[in-house]
Amino acid sequence: MYDFEYAKAKSVSDAAARLKATDGAKLLAGGMTLLPTIKLRLAKPSALVDLGRLGDLKGITVAGGIVTIKAMTRHADVLRSADVAKAIPALVTLAGGIGDVQVRHRGTIGGSVANNDPAADYPAGCLGLGATIVTSKRELAADDFFQALFTTALQPDEIITEIKFPVPERAAYIKFKNPASRYAIVGAFVSKGPKGVRVAITGAGDNGVFRIAAMEQALTKSFTAKAIEGIKVDPGNMLGDIHASSEYRAHLVTVMAKRAVVACG
């Protein structure tokens, strides 16, 4: 691993100032993606700004029909939260399916969302619930936040501070996972609530997480698996690799979305 500068951020504004001051600096959250990426020499940041000491970036609150999860909250904390389990159990399912126990003890929601891996789980949760991504500068709707593979609306010195999830009437997340990595080959997050019916798919799209308007319209009329069984996505817009071809992923999108509708109860 190439060496880098390292600093423990003292506050969000301190971290933002360090990002601005140093070309090639990256934020370090849980490090479950970034550190392996640096070790494999797929990334070579000049400096890491560690957010790990910022206690005010950790925690979960539920109030006024909104679940707020601060950026440095670990997957294990979401998994063990009785408040989240009561308000949005689908998020507990999602957090519990990320990586493995040891990864969930370090990995954070903010890191996952900022990285926007096309096979990560949280982007589907954010888009599927119509979450708001709160940063050091502004509030962004999930629809505007996730832009392309590993690409978000974040500016170079902008830091996610928390994510607000409106509590739905019902929601479910179902993923067909890679048996080795536990990343989604196809994951479907379906919800019905204050933001209407939303269907978000991760793992499959060649431009990252995406919604399926045709399924949302069909489910608004009839919230049943049957209502969407004829709705297919174009394999030409799907990722394909040794684990699953784009045709297979396109097939799985409909299957996983149907299962998620059933799981919504």
């Binding site: 392996p36 494999l40 040891q102």
Partner: peptide, 29 residues
């Protein structure tokens, strides 16, 4: 494996099992 997969390097870190090949010594300060 040195790639966060195998778990051979698991230690308890503030009471939680983590993979010590994917934690910087400085994060453990």
């Amino acid at each position: 494996c040195d790639t966060t997969q195998c778990g051979c390097c698991t230690v308890l870190f503030n009471g939680d099992a983590v993979k010590s090949c994917t934690v910087l010594a400085q994060q453990a300060d």
